[in-house]
Amino acid sequence: NKEHILAQKEVLTPIEYEHYVKHLFDIGEITKELYIELSS
């Protein structure tokens, strides 16, 4: 869920976080809207 993803932002580097969010989007775990929101 969104809270879990945002928690990852605390422990990952910005680049790792971007890759993580992109991966979730690629596998269909999150919607495009959520992907855009989380990567901003």
Rank of each mutant, 00 (worst) to 15 (best):
E29K: 10
K22H: 07
L6I: 11
I30W: 00
V11W: 10
E33R: 04
T31N: 10
H4V: 15
P14L: 13
E18D: 10
L34H: 06
E29I: 13
K9I: 09
F25Q: 03
V21T: 05
Y17T: 01
S39Y: 04
E29H: 13
V21Y: 03
G28A: 05
N1W: 15
E37R: 02
T13V: 05
K2M: 12
E18P: 03
G28V: 01
L34G: 04
N1V: 06
L12W: 04
A7H: 06
L12A: 02
S39K: 10
I27T: 13
L34E: 12
H19G: 13
I15A: 15
I30F: 01
K32L: 15
Y17K: 01
E18H: 10
I5Y: 08
T31F: 03
E37D: 15
K22A: 07
V11T: 15
S40G: 13
E10D: 14
H23N: 13
S39Q: 13
K9L: 08
Y35H: 03
I15P: 13
L12G: 02
E3D: 13
V11K: 14
H19I: 14
I15D: 15
I5K: 02
K9H: 05
V21Q: 00
I5N: 02
S40R: 10
E16P: 01
E29S: 08
E3H: 14
E29V: 12
T31Q: 04
L24S: 02
E16W: 03
T13W: 04
A7V: 06
S39F: 06
K2V: 13
A7P: 03
E37G: 03
I27E: 11
I5V: 09
H23T: 10
T13K: 07
Y35T: 01
P14S: 12
E10L: 10
I27N: 13
E37T: 05
V21F: 02
E33P: 04
I30P: 00
L24H: 01
T13I: 04
T31A: 08
A7F: 03
D26P: 00
E29F: 10
L24T: 01
K22W: 11
L12F: 07
K22V: 04
N1D: 15
L38H: 01
H4A: 10
E33L: 05
K22G: 06
A7C: 03
S40E: 12
E18I: 10
I30D: 00
D26Y: 09
H4Y: 07
L24I: 04
V21L: 12
L6G: 04
E37I: 05
I5F: 05
E3V: 08
E10R: 08
E3W: 05
V11N: 12
Y17H: 03
I36E: 06
L12N: 02
I27K: 13
S39G: 04
V11S: 11
Y35P: 00
K22E: 10
S40W: 10
V21A: 02
E37P: 00
E3N: 13
H4R: 09
Q8W: 05
K9T: 03
I5A: 04
L34P: 01
E29A: 15
E10T: 13
Y17Q: 01
T31G: 12
K22F: 08
P14Y: 07
L38A: 03
G28S: 04
I30V: 05
H23G: 07
Y17R: 00
L34M: 14
E18W: 11
K22Q: 11
F25D: 01
L34A: 08
F25P: 00
P14T: 15
K32P: 12
D26E: 14
N1P: 09
I27P: 00
I15Y: 08
K9C: 04
L38E: 01
E3Y: 04
K9R: 14
I27Y: 11
P14M: 09
G28M: 05
K22N: 12
G28K: 04
I36Q: 14
H23R: 08
I30Y: 00
E16H: 04
T31R: 04
I5G: 02
N1T: 11
F25Y: 12
F25L: 12
D26R: 05
I15M: 15
L38P: 00
S40Y: 10
E10N: 08
K2W: 11
I27R: 12
I5H: 06
T13A: 10
Y17P: 00
V11C: 08
E3R: 07
T13H: 08
L24Q: 04
I27M: 15
K9D: 01
A7W: 02
P14D: 15
Q8E: 06
L24A: 02
Y35F: 15
Y17W: 11
F25H: 05
I5R: 02
E29T: 10
I30H: 00
Q8D: 02
Q8N: 08
L6C: 02
E18S: 07
I30A: 00
Y17E: 00
E37A: 08
T31H: 06
I30N: 00
I27H: 13
Y20F: 12
L24W: 03
N1H: 12
G28W: 01
K9N: 04
Y20K: 02
Y20I: 05
I15N: 14
T31D: 14
E37H: 06
E18G: 06
L24E: 01
S39A: 14
V21S: 00
I27F: 08
L38S: 01
S39V: 09
T13S: 13
N1S: 15
I30G: 00
K9V: 05
T13P: 08
Y35Q: 03
T13F: 06
L34F: 08
L38M: 07
E18N: 07
F25V: 03
S39P: 00
G28R: 02
K2F: 15
Y35R: 02
P14R: 11
L12Y: 07
E29D: 10
H19P: 01
Y20E: 02
E16T: 02
I36H: 15
E3I: 14
V21P: 00
E18M: 12
S40P: 06
N1R: 15
T13R: 07
E3M: 08
E37F: 07
V11E: 09
I27A: 15
I36K: 11
Q8Y: 05
Q8F: 08
I5D: 01
T13N: 09
K9Q: 09
F25M: 11
H19C: 08
H19E: 14
N1M: 14
L6H: 07
D26G: 06
Y35D: 00
L12V: 04
E33T: 06
L12E: 01
H19D: 09
I36S: 12
I36P: 00
E29Q: 10
K32E: 12
G28E: 04
K9E: 03
I5P: 02
L38N: 01
E16D: 11
E3A: 12
N1F: 15
E37M: 06
V21D: 00
E37V: 06
I27Q: 15
Y17M: 03
Q8G: 03
Q8P: 02
P14F: 07
S39H: 04
L24M: 10
K2Q: 09
S40H: 13
G28T: 02
A7N: 10
I15F: 12
V21I: 11
E33I: 06
I36Y: 14
E10M: 06
H4D: 13
I27W: 10
N1I: 15
Q8M: 14
E3S: 13
T31W: 04
G28D: 04
D26F: 05
H4L: 11
F25A: 05
L12S: 04
Y35S: 02
H23L: 10
T31I: 04
K9Y: 05
L34V: 12
E16R: 03
E37W: 07
E37C: 04
Y20H: 05
E37S: 06
Y20D: 00
V11F: 12
E37Y: 08
V21N: 00
H23K: 12
H4I: 07
E16L: 04
S40I: 12
K2S: 07
V21M: 07
L6S: 05
L34I: 07
N1L: 13
P14I: 12
H23W: 11
I5Q: 02
E29L: 15
L6Q: 09
Q8K: 14
L6K: 11
H23S: 11
Y20V: 03
H19N: 15
F25G: 01
L24G: 01
H4G: 10
G28H: 06
T13C: 04
T13E: 08
E16N: 06
K32R: 09
K2R: 15
V11Q: 12
L24Y: 02
K2A: 08
Y17L: 02
G28L: 03
I30K: 00
P14V: 09
